[in-house]
Amino acid sequence: MNNGMTHFDQDGQAHMVDVAGKRETQRVARASGYIQMNPATLGLIASGTAKKGDVLGIARIAAIQASKRTSELIPLCHPLYLTRVAVEFHLDHQNNMVECITTAETFGRTGVEIEALTATSIALLTIYDMCKAVDRGMIINDIRLLEKKGGRSGHWRAPEESQS
């Protein structure tokens, strides 16, 4: 019995979901997450004076690369032709955090939620990597799906209180 889990067959064996019978539609997913740090670390990022260079620029490129390689990282994930990946960063000086919001889009038979979540995760890990020499105590948290559109399940949005 698979208990509604799509990546397991009726015998409980893992398998890649067959999407051949699904209709191709425009699919969009948005994900977000935060990395909290010391005020001085956020200052280095904001001023562009981190020793390793443009932290947010490199994190943006890493996120886009990661979204394109998601199927190589996540077992049973379909490789997708992405039509757009956008990565935004918001600096929160009051809480010493950088928020990352990633949007992934495709026209296809399966959604792009995992690509958006992977991109967000890798962007935040890249920020950590680039700043760890000055702040090993950074905390990555609250990585989540904000919204998805397209396909049979239609439009889903996270409850308002959990949105940024």
Results as ranks from 00 to 15, higher is better:
Asn2Tyr: 07
Asn2Phe: 03
Thr6His: 08
Gln10Trp: 00
Val17Met: 08
Val19Ser: 00
Lys22Gly: 01
Thr25Ala: 00
Thr25Cys: 07
Gln26Leu: 13
Val28Leu: 15
Gly33Ile: 03
Asn38Glu: 15
Asn38Pro: 02
Ala40His: 15
Ile45Thr: 06
Ala46Arg: 15
Ala46Cys: 10
Thr49Met: 08
Ala50Asp: 13
Ala50His: 11
Lys51Cys: 08
Lys52Met: 11
Gly53Phe: 01
Gly53Val: 03
Leu56His: 06
Ile58Gly: 02
Arg60Glu: 13
Ile61His: 08
Ala62His: 02
Ile64Ala: 07
Arg69Lys: 14
Ser71Val: 00
Leu73Asn: 00
Pro75Met: 13
Leu82Gln: 07
Thr83Gln: 05
Arg84Asn: 14
Arg84Phe: 05
Val85Ile: 14
Val87Trp: 07
Val87Arg: 04
His90Met: 13
Leu91Phe: 01
Met97Leu: 13
Val98Trp: 06
Cys100Phe: 14
Ile101Thr: 15
Ala104Val: 11
Thr106Asn: 12
Phe107Gln: 12
Phe107Arg: 04
Thr110Ala: 03
Val112Trp: 08
Ala116Asp: 10
Ala119Tyr: 01
Ala119Met: 01
Ala123Arg: 09
Leu124Ser: 01
Leu125Asp: 10
Ile127Phe: 10
Asp129Glu: 12
Cys131Gly: 02
Cys131Trp: 00
Ile139Gln: 14
Ile140Gln: 05
Asn141Gln: 10
Asp142Asn: 12
Asp142Val: 00
Arg144Met: 06
Leu146Cys: 07
Leu146Tyr: 01
Glu147Gln: 15
Lys148Pro: 04
Gly151Phe: 02
Arg152Asp: 04
Ser153Leu: 11
Gly154Ser: 07
Trp156Ile: 04
Arg157Gly: 05
Ser162Ile: 11
